[in-house]
Design a protein around this nucleic acid. Sequence first.
DNA 1: TATTTAACCTGGACGC
DNA 2: TGCGTCCAGGTTAAAT
Length: 302
Amino acid sequence: MPELPEVETVRDGLARWVAGRTVARVEVTHARAVRRHLAGAQDLAARLTGATLASAERRGKYLWLPLAGRAEALVAHLGMSGQLLVQPPESADEKHLHVRIGFTDGGRELRFVDQRTFGGVLLDVLAPTVDHPEQQVPAQIVHIARDPVDPLFDEAEFSRRLRRRDSAIKRALLDQSLVSGIGNIYADESLWRARLHGERPARGLTRRQVEDLLGHVRDVLGAALRAGGTSFDALYVNVNGQSGYFDRSLSAYGREGEPCPRCGTAIARNSFMNRSSFFCPSCQRPPRRAALSSPRRAALSP
DNA sequence: TATTTAACCTGGACGC
DNA sequence: TGCGTCCAGGTTAAAT
């Protein structure tokens, strides 16, 4: 599933293959892929045709390609299975090809392919960021927090906000308005490295624990980025259709029943937030019931 | 206001 | 072989 390392790998590919090129035509073959462009597919195509894609930017799991000389950008989110592929025009259409963008140079096309259709593209105006108004991001994502590898990420502010939360740590890590780029896989991996159970209340964490957790988040994201991201199947690939290799380095996620690399206890799995959570029952002690937030306590009561 | 839940969606895996 | 069910999870509107 595309989280920060996967999206950054795609962004890097777009910067190499697409930036500086001028759009000649846009074809939308699946309306759901542009559902967040409220003016519709025709409007998206009309406004994008003739525009030059200046660069490739990212915040968290969102990508955008600013249009040269205009305060607008082509925004993309990969959802769970979205792919942005750079393909020769003559190559066969992918089964789930939803948007095709051709360029005036006649070279490789940019294709948005998405099996589960949770992702999409849209054209959006740029707006100043809250913390650094001299910087601009697409208006629809101004609520998305900076990610932990952003040089302007404010650790002190993150710690303060996290430790004020009346919810579980994992839920907070997945909240993109608190910290972006982390999904289910890297949340579990980071918590395993920090020896923290995801259901522990965020409010009970010390500053030191938050610093430690953040360090592990950065380590995991960095290692995954160097491996080209995590791929369990063909759903995540870079712009050239290649998979990443970080799944071979995962310690907890997807390893139910396998020995914990640290203590040998079998990795456990439970359901949390309608998702699977993987953890070591020995290294990551579950919180005492009294420490759980009230709704969670009520949910666990017989 | 803060937090939690449910819905969206498709195809692979699995059991019968 | 074919059918039905479950599962994967990022985002956000709606509910609590």
